[in-house]
Nucleic acid binder design. Sequence first.
RNA 1: GCCCAGAUGGCGGAAUCGGUAGACGCGCUGGUCUCAAACACCAGUGGAUUCACUUCCAUGCCGGUUCGACUCCGGCUCUGGGUACCA
Length: 938
Amino acid sequence: MEYNFREIEAKWQKFWHENQTYKTNNSDNRPKYYILDMFPYPSGAGLHVGHPLGFIASDIVARFKRLQGMNVLHPMGYDAFGLPAEQYAIQTGRHPEDTTRENIARYRQQFDRIGFSYDWSREIRTCAPEYYKWTQWVFLQLFHSWYNCDKQKAEHIDSLIAHFEQEGFNDDLHRYLTGDIEHDLKPFSASDWKQFSEKEKSDVLLNFRLAYLSEAWVNWCPAMGTVLANDEVKDGVSERGGYPVERKRMPQWSLRITAYAERLLSGLDTIDWSESMKEAQRNWIGRSEGTSLKFQLDGHAQSIEVFTTRPDTIFGVSFLTLAPEHELVDQITTAEYRNAVSDYINEAKKKSERERQADVKKVSGQFTGAYVLHPFTQAKVPVWIGDYVLAGYGTGAVMAVPGHDSRDYAFAKHFALPIIEVVKGGDLSVESYDAKTGELVNSDFLNGLDVKAAVRKAIEEIEKHGIGKGKINYRLRDAAFGRQRYWGEPIPIYFKDGIPCPLAENELPLILPQVDKFLPTETGEPPLARAANWKYQDKYDYEWTTMPGWAGSSWYFLRYMDPHNSTEFVAQEAANYWKNVDLYFGGAEHATGHLLYVRFWTKFLFDIGKIQVDEPAQKLVNQGMIQGTSMVGHVRVERNAGEEEKYILLPPGKAIKDETFHKNYLIDFVEFADGKYFIDQNGAAKTRAKEATFRNYHLSADRIELTPATEKMSKSKFNVVNPDDICDQYGADTLRLYEMFLGPLEQHKPWNTNGISGTYNFLRKFWRLFYDQSGNLLLNDASAEKAELKVLHKTLKKISEDIEKFAFNTCVSSFMIAVNELSDLKCHKRTILEPLVIALSPFAPHIAEELWSKLGHTTSVCLERFPKIDTSYLVEDTFDYPVQINGKMKFKHTASLQDTPAQIEAGILASDEGQKYLEGKTPKKFVVVPGRIVNIVV
RNA sequence: GCCCAGAUGGCGGAAUCGGUAGACGCGCUGGUCUCAAACACCAGUGGAUUCACUUCCAUGCCGGUUCGACUCCGGCUCUGGGUACCA
């Protein structure tokens, strides 16, 4: 009986399904373990071999934790709202709901074929109304909350209203304002508050709500009638279609994540995530300590506020730079400069934020004609605008100190502005001196101090004069939460006389309505504006934007705990039992998106008392990306009777002309020979038949070499490898082992099936410990020899240690070594093989179940316990010491592990080899590391 | 530009605390079995040198620390990822 993976895998997948082997209960006397994968977006291309890498790893850990006697929660679901489905709907008219459902069905089939141990009764889909009802519910909680910075937690908005009713709002309470829109709010008294209209009250409260409506800068594409992400904009035009894009201020729903900046930062110290991941979040949050400082405008009532981390350089200020979008620019620009300024602003508008930040070399700016007065010297300081200053960061204005800031230096040099030295230590004729050490000069009351002391003194003086105060600033911005899209959660808000009003909880879910087209309206309103009579109580317009892709994923880990609850987002008992994720697997690319938002929502739900944990995941593991191999050819376009004919050319370097381009070619019909890749006429004909894109592609010779390139796996690059194909050919167990065997989990690596036969052979060899080639059972009940027990326990020890370290590649190696050694020992003993089957079951569950049943068991191997490791079999009494001469290994010397270094030294000196290598010389030094090595220095 | 990660045979990779560099697998070479092939099994396989014993060179590059460095330190090159004119 040969190893027949097709039969075995189908049999056990059916068994697990019928017996609900992986169903998990929310109460149990075993310790809990929650292991989660970042759920996938169900794309039309299906799963490729890159997806399962993390899923297989987490499945191994989940199965291992079960064997260790834990109650394991290991669920899977779908992040099902998103742009690709909507884009497809725009092109084809098919409803995203239908295509998404089909894609999910395909994903599920592929998942099942790989033998994952998910509890599918807990599956969630973010696009299901039963799910997004609760996403909308969280939004309402955010809307009804404000951040009390005195208590450092979110509270119901009523406590703030009570405050206003008693005391109104004064300058002292400015500290409660945490977001980007604080400049607008003027003080008011308690009686003012009481006399405010509903609209006025609503506007005031929007400055505090954690979900709020405000104006925000976006990339607006008038031709498409929509807002674009930074990636969708290239060189000032939309990537799709090439339409002009400009920066525009639009009303936007935002979430006040900035209120949580400090806690998002300090919380990192409590979780076991990789240092690089934490660093990414720290850099994103970007805490900096400095001073806010007001510069009085010359001839205007207003002042310009700046934030600086270098108040010590206040006497080095030679100009101010405002972001072109700064609200004061229009008012302060003098008639003389009006045209130049508005030209500059128009140019800046065409650039995306990313583009403005990318070009470090090119300096641009424009003088406004206005001046501010230096707060200490009263000197007139010119006010410029420059696109290196971003409106969204700090106050959107910089006090420029060209002597000690390289960007300001470049700006000053370019426009011939004065450069003043205020800290000694550099040569300002060459470059700015940015270091934070040195003695202050040219700085009045700061002269003679070092930088640190000068910073303190400057803040002191600034505060004394009432022109500013010490402040902590964050780079983090509030998160834009509205999208001009159809395929997302509707925001549960309607507008009554211009006032945004929340739905009541019992009115949820607000179901996504049907629309005739998935496009903006002719007047540029979002797609939801097309929905017929989509009004609250038939009267009031609903909010037309939908939630962003990250909304549903910001709390999904909680829903898995209690996925079918129709009265609560999660039952208290379930939330208190599972608490948070013990081990979270996912890609590092989510560092500053999903992983920051989910931490924010978790802290918020903790604040309002809905859950007992304030971090979503205790430990995080990032798996690397599996890249694909693309076949790249050079293509030349020729016109033939009006029809374009494209020719794939001879090898690179020959006959390549200017008008050629690179084309990724289908890997399916490429021939591999002598380490090179070729396509011939036959392959080209098959390609034309298979993919419409290649209809007009021909070869310029009978056989052409293609160049391999390693890049991200993607349908459009024709380099996707489908796990189904591997399952067909080798089976799921081989796929699982091979993906783990490829290398360390976190590392990026190209997919290459060259070595897959090795893991397949290993499984067959394992099988042959039970059956000989003619199918006779070899298993026997003889008692085990010491050598066999040693192999077993050495392997068990290595496996359990390496799983904890997520070193799955070396786990597979050590299984291979064990099977090789047991084969050499001709060991077919139940006492050895039975524990080994259990240890293998997390990695290759199908074959493990089959052999477990062949061993005579009637229950699943998944329900067993991991075998106990007996290290006494591993103890040695002698050791083969490698003996080095001057650090180079020369020979081995066997000695008892009981021997003292002196005894070992004597033994080596007396041995033939010792004599030979020393040639009668006396060693200068004799190093003996017991149980490790000997090094003789001569 | 800055931050993070990485670089080891023909290939994927191993080396857990500074201690035998190349485990394990692929590929390749030779052999056994076979009419032949496939499978399986056995042996070999970093490079140079040598008939051989041996010796030398080897973990991106250059230095350093150490009895001993893939591992630690300083400098550099390249690759991948992230990303801010962050004041």
